[in-house]
Design a protein around this nucleic acid. Structure first.
Lengths: 229, 229
DNA sequence: TAAAACTGTTACGTAACTGTCACAAAAGCA
DNA sequence: TGCTTTTGTGACAGTTACGTAACAGTTTTA
């Protein structure tokens, strides 16, 4: 599995909830670690240095709010975004009032989709622009930081959408993405765009990638979507 | 031809409600199956493996919450998103609903449009990767994520229907599927296609699988259907 | 400000895939 | 054995999904 998967630490004491969230987070392609209480959470944070923390409000012993407070005190963990899960909206207000420093909070009952979106949103913040890292596939190199793409040492000119599209593909080479998933990822949720638009942009990406002679690395999977390689 | 319709399982004991939802879900292009109580629901889930479940909270015998809990325990059904419908709006219930592992929650009275949107949203998440897993049978490997099928290390070229057909077979090797069941599963419900069409596609699948020398792994069960192995 | 770049949609050509049929082959049955 | 039923399969016409050029509207850049 990709060594540079985003790491998510989930802190939740209720087993059923935890299971579901773990399942979904993994399906999103995150590396998930779990803590079932506050102490474990603090230890695991040290050990794993996750990119984002999903933290339940109500927990035995050390409450989520306290965990969050402690994390935000230490300089080395302060930068990790914390998403709080809270059962009641009033308490969320209190959270806000107390300034625990949570970066986002989601009120139960939440939609899992929504929570995933928030996690991704926080990750984008921390690892800017599709993980400020450098992704490589074959002779294609995508530099998230400088926003530049090269193929065989040669720089390609991509529009913003093509860049994000390629970034998504390169996150998981070989994985087939449906048009809907790509719309979700590249265009953003709740956007009303025809699915065929994806085809057009894939076409443009292909053109850019093959401009100076390379083979087309984008695979069309009829009836399913597209993938890289 | 709307092959490959998403399958929705609706679990609702109240007839009027059920009618409305079935009507709307079908209008959206989903294949709908119904259960009127918890036990039926659990059985149907096994049989139909729906892509998403819409589950009423209050039901005789086995409550929605209990059905959901059980589904989320089993690994093979855990991945199916569950949308809970509840008549009560008190927060306690909402929270408990999610704690059982429901993926989304809609409070009655809801807007049908909203419910449809939620169903679609959940589907977008799981659909093409219905089985993001890798299935293996003998020297045949089907990778749901990359949509690739290999036999003896060699990649096979399958059309979408053959791919789904093989996927269905490989989910439960040895199980005999009737032509009707396969039409349901692979083509989608409410589709008017001659049952003999199944034969043709099985033939095509066989040809692809034996192209480079292997034995035919598909067994014909006269008078009953087909199975893998 | 104009020019350039980018976007989403449409329309149309094409290649791939689909479903049906007809007939051949096989399997069951008496 | 002959007769009936079921299955295998090549051929073919119809359909669908995809690739892409063109275009108009919008945003960004100079």
């Amino acid at each position: 599995m990709a060594a540079d998967q985003p790491r998510v630490l989930l802190v939740e004491d209720e087993p059923a909830q935890r299971e579901v969230l773990v399942y979904n987070l993994k399906a999103e392609g995150f590396a998930v670690s779990c803590a079932v209480n506050g102490e474990d959470a603090l230890l695991l944070v040290q050990e794993e240095m996750p990119d984002v923390i999903v933290l339940d409000w109500m927990m035995p012993r050390l409450s989520g709010i306290e965990v969050c407070r402690r994390l935000k005190i230490k300089p080395e963990t302060r930068g990790i975004p914390v998403i709080m899960l809270s059962a009641r909206s009033e308490e969320v207000d209190r959270v806000r009032g107390l300034e625990t420093g949570a970066d986002d909070y989601v009120v139960k009952p939440y939609s899992v989709l929504e929570l995933m979106a928030r996690v991704r949103a926080q990750l984008r913040r921390v690892r800017p622009a599709t993980s400020g890292q450098v992704l490589t596939y074959d002779d294609i190199v995508l530099d998230g930081e400088s926003h530049k793409v090269t193929r065989a040492e040669q720089e390609l000119k991509l529009g913003p959408t093509e860049f994000r599209l390629l970034g998504t593909f390169m996150e998981k080479p070989g994985r087939v993405w449906s048009r809907e998933q790509l719309l979700d990822r590249v265009w953003g949720r709740d956007i009303f765009v025809d699915t065929r638009t994806v085809d057009v942009h894939v076409g443009r990406l292909r053109k850019a990638l093959t401009m100076s002679g390379g083979l087309d690395p984008v695979r069309t999977v009829r009836g399913a979507g597209y993938s890289l390689g």
